[in-house]
Design a protein around this nucleic acid. Structure first.
Length: 228
DNA sequence: GCGACAG
DNA sequence: ATCTTGTCGC
């Protein structure tokens, strides 16, 4: 698939923040998003212990059956130091390369990290949404920004994530009794729909099948590249 | 000034 | 993210 050319790469955290501020206005936060996407892509990255080597993976699933339709992996290097709020700059180049190799264009991108629930409202999911032009959402395993009321123990229970009076995402329980995940919109999708999609993608485990599959693929690729 | 801080 | 054994629970 086609992906927007990567903007000039930031050399400092300050420059990285400028890029986020500049791209932020390009977000479409009004579209409800696809009601019944046919294909959904999961993205994730695995890192090698001591080095800066990484493997970025994308797995496209049939949204109805959750069966994999296409996979793409690329070995690369972390493109930026880890700084909370600038996390996307580590994985973006490798993820973009992996996306470019896809022969199909997914209807939705499910990213591993936050979207709008970000210090400058421009997390990884937003960034990837703008670069690809595709609907995107973020599913994070831990909190970054915002506060919320307690979430019910049953699957499907949720609570709005609010920050400075704005709803930036939703804390969603995807299975009975498990820790909830943090869902936030990235681009061209509404929070309501985003949560629906995440639940549909998580029939059995805490994390959506999309990210679970991408996670496995990225680690496999890393260890294979490491055992030679 | 003291925590919090996606992966 | 990654480093790591046993252990609690269905």
């Amino acid at each position: 698939m086609k992906v927007e050319t990567l903007h000039p790469w930031p050399a400092t955290p300050g420059e990285a923040e400028e890029i986020q501020q500049k791209l932020r206005p390009l977000l479409d936060l009004d579209s409800p998003g696809p009601a019944a996407p046919r294909t959904v892509a999961g993205l994730d990255v695995a890192y090698e212990k001591g080095t800066d080597r990484l493997a970025a993976a994308v797995v496209v699933l049939d949204a109805a059956t959750l069966q994999p339709l296409e996979e793409s992996v690329v070995i690369g290097a972390a493109a930026f130091p880890y700084v909370p709020g600038l996390f996307a700059f580590r994985e973006l180049p490798a993820l973009v390369e992996a996306l470019k190799k896809l022969t199909v264009t997914p209807d939705l991108l499910v990213c591993d990290g936050h979207g709008l629930a970000h210090p400058r409202r421009f997390g990884l999911a937003c960034h990837l949404g703008v670069l690809t032009g595709l609907p995107s959402l973020g599913v994070a395993k831990t909190h970054l920004l915002g506060s919320h009321e307690p979430v019910g123990e049953r699957r499907g229970s949720s609570a709005d994530l609010r920050h400075e009076g704005q709803v930036v995402g939703r804390v969603l329980r995807t299975q009975d009794g498990v820790r909830p995940v943090y869902v936030s919109v990235g681009h061209r999708i509404g929070l309501e729909n985003a949560c629906r999609q995440v639940l549909a993608l998580s029939p059995r485990y805490r994390l959506p099948e999309t990210t679970r599959r991408a996670d496995r693929l990225s680690r496999r690729a890393l260890e294979q590249r490491g055992s030679r």
